[in-house]
Nucleic acid binder design. Structure first.
Ligand SMILES: [Zn+2]
Ligand SMILES: [Zn+2]
Ligand SMILES: [Zn+2]
Ligand SMILES: [Zn+2]
Lengths: 145, 145
DNA sequence: TCTGTGGGTGTAATATAATTACATAACGTC
DNA sequence: GACGTTATGTAATTATATTACACCCACAGA
């Protein structure tokens, strides 16, 4: 259901091309993330996965690990939350190590940029393997909130 | 004790100038962070605060909140850890909203840069109020590790 | 001096986030 | 059919952080 269908189909293709198996659980978690359109807590995903009965933590954390490893989702570190990757599926998500997140604290939406440059003022000789870049503030629609 | 004395004296002056009260608990937590020279977990601080007996969580979290609010320490979001601010105390730490951390995953040391620029490719109209910028990798001494 | 008031701390309980360990299932390979 | 690999189910536990309430103390005004 929802307008997430298109995105999910693209994810399906993305996984098929790379030998990644987007199983029902993983696909369902991704769908929940896409539908939310913003940061979602792992325990909220758990509740949504099995309304009445409720899934166990490992179920959702394993799915989230798969999705983040594959580049289909990102963890929002400062919120302990997760969000679907919003970037255009036409480019390779595995080269995906430099992501900037712009999180509106008012309407809870996330904008995302994938950048390809290294930090300008790293210490001499420091070799970056992973980066966490999150900006919090207000989006254009929420400046007046 | 330790080579942290100099830094702590500077923190003392810094607080005095601004009407911030660096109480014994807060000072002790800062000292532990400075001595560690890298990311420290809140529960490790708790254990160190009262060896035998152990302090309660609010004690250390309140101290950490004070230190981070004041700019004397930073939270390392992706590690759920905390680190003393390493920047030169001569400049104002309250204008301290843009900090870059370079964390060596090998030797566990942190380098820090305070930058004064905004992100170049923020969404149109997005107003940043807080940023989290963390780079993980290997420092110059650990490239071979 | 009395009396608030506000900031800081002590303590217990609770909430939130994530991992470990072990059993089971599904699938392809030999 | 036996086996290795990958994914899932389930229970228990660990790790991280907050809430609520009591107490203390320095300080300001009456
Ligand atoms: Zn992305
Ligand atoms: Zn907004
Ligand atoms: Zn700093
Ligand atoms: Zn190193």
């Amino acid at each position: 259901m929802s307008n997430a269908t298109h995105t999910l189909d693209a994810a399906e293709r993305y996984c098929a091309e790379r030998g990644l198996s987007l199983t029902p659980v993983r696909r369902r978690v991704l769908e929940l993330l896409v539908d939310a359109g913003g940061p979602v807590k792992a325990y909220d995903l758990m509740a949504a996965l099995k309304p009445g009965g409720s899934a166990q933590p490992p179920t959702v954390y394993r799915a989230l690990n798969f999705l983040t490893r594959s580049g289909l989702a990102h963890k929002v570190e400062a919120l302990n939350a997760y969000t679907a990757c919003l970037c255009d599926y036409s480019h390779d998500k595995s080269g995906h190590d430099t992501v900037q997140l712009f999180i509106c604290e008012c309407c809870d939406t996330i904008n995302e940029r994938h950048i390809h440059k290294s930090p300008t003022d790293a210490p001499e000789g420091f070799r970056v393997s992973r980066s966490v870049i999150e900006y919090y503030g207000r989006c254009a629609r929420c400046v007046a909130c």
